[in-house]
């Protein structure tokens, strides 16, 4: 019933607007075309200035309301450089945006049609055109230079002492594998993948390096220690998105990718910083991967070396889990993160 009423109200509003519009056309014929044109130019010219003022105020207000929702800034060393680059780019583009928008709406208001005004025949001016070719070119060169400097820094090889974490995307959760005590990940083959036999990433049990590799639902990282993610997918393209660390890399089936970061704050630090006791670092899937895309979430815990070591010591290797008979498969548990998607889908 309320739906019907809403539609009725909308239709009524339409009819009223249409009647006004039609009437205004008759009025303009009565008043004479010239007078109607002058009036509409005055109104629209005035609205140009109104829009400019409201727009500038609105942009300020929008920033005021939303700036606290952005979070406390980058939580990785690499991300801080990105934040700086964003700030520089914002300063340059923000300045250009305000100046050009002000000119646009001010000109529109100022040079609205008036009786007796003649437009100025001004087809070109080489000097002006050179100026506004060269200045943007210089500004952009600066941005490219800073951007690429940082780009090469963050895409360079990870430090030798970086810890290694393998993240594999699947519909619809993340499979996280640690190399274990030997610090080396064992080899894997996609044809060996078996969820039933607790081998979700297809580890080759013949490979001795696999014996101590363990898997986890959460990603644990050590504060201040570089970490290199080895990223893959076992079905469609996913993307490892690390919003607080300002990093991102696609997970592509068949083509391993990497990214590395140095976390700067522990999860506990961030809880204090944001004054939010529920704060967690999250890994989001940033490449559309199917109906459960929005639920591909993993929690990242950044902690001290001691905390990490204690946690790692408690983990059971996947080899153990897969080869111990009658053990419930933990990999199936990993699927529960996608429960919401699956529940709604079914």
């Amino acid at each position: 019933m309320s739906g019907f009423l809403t539609v009725l109200v909308i239709v009524l509003i339409f009819v009223v607007i249409f009647q006004i519009a039609k009437a205004s056309e008759y009025v303009s014929i009565l008043k004479g075309e010239k007078k109607a044109r002058q009036q509409s130019n005055r109104i629209n010219g005035f609205l140009m200035i109104v829009f400019l003022v409201l727009g500038l105020f609105g942009a300020y207000y929008c920033n005021d309301v939303l700036k606290d929702k952005l979070g406390p800034g980058a939580a990785s060393v690499q991300g801080e450089g990105i934040d700086t680059l964003i700030a520089v780019t914002l300063a340059i583009t923000g300045f250009v945006c305000v100046v050009t928008q002000v000119l646009l709406f001010w000109f529109a208001f100022k040079f609205q049609e008036k009786e007796g005004r003649n437009a100025f025949y001004f087809p070109h001016n080489s000097k002006l055109e050179v100026i506004w070719t060269v200045i943007p070119a210089i500004a952009l060169t600066i941005l490219v230079a800073f951007g690429l400097k940082h780009w090469f820094a963050i895409t360079s090889d990870a430090p030798k002492d970086a810890m290694v974490v393998e993240v594999t995307g699947k519909q619809f959760n993340w499979l996280v594998r640690y190399p274990g005590k030997d610090g080396q990940l064992g080899s894997k083959k996609f044809k060996l993948i078996s969820d039933v036999n607790s081998n979700p990433v297809g580890q080759d049990w013949e490979d001795g390096l696999n014996k101590d590799d363990f898997m986890s639902n959460e990603i644990h990282l050590v504060v201040g220690k570089p970490v290199k993610f080895i990223i893959g997918s076992r079905d469609v393209i996913h993307d490892v998105g690390l919003p607080q660390f300002r990093m991102k890399m696609d997970a592509v089936p068949g083509i391993p990718t990497t990214l590395w970061i140095t976390p700067k704050y522990t999860t506990t630090d961030m809880r204090a910083k944001t004054e939010n006791p529920d704060f967690v670092f999250e890994l989001s899937c940033d490449q559309m991967c199917g109906a459960g895309h929005f639920s591909m979430r993993a929690v990242i815990v950044v902690e001290t070396q001691q905390e990490f070591d204690a946690w790692a010591a408690k983990q059971k290797s996947q080899y153990e889990l897969a080869n111990a008979s009658a053990t419930p498969a933990p990999a199936a548990g990993a699927d529960s993160t996608a429960s919401k998607a699956v529940a709604i889908a079914k």
Partner: peptide, 30 residues
């Protein structure tokens, strides 16, 4: 690709400034 992408901003900027100059000292009928 970064370099070439940001290069597109130059012709785009030229166009914007030219549109602004087109309405400058015009006699605009809205």
């Amino acid at each position: 690709f970064v370099l070439l992408t940001l290069l597109i901003a130059v012709p785009s900027a030229i166009k914007v400034f030219n549109w602004l100059t087109t309405i400058w000292r015009g006699n605009i009928n809205f």
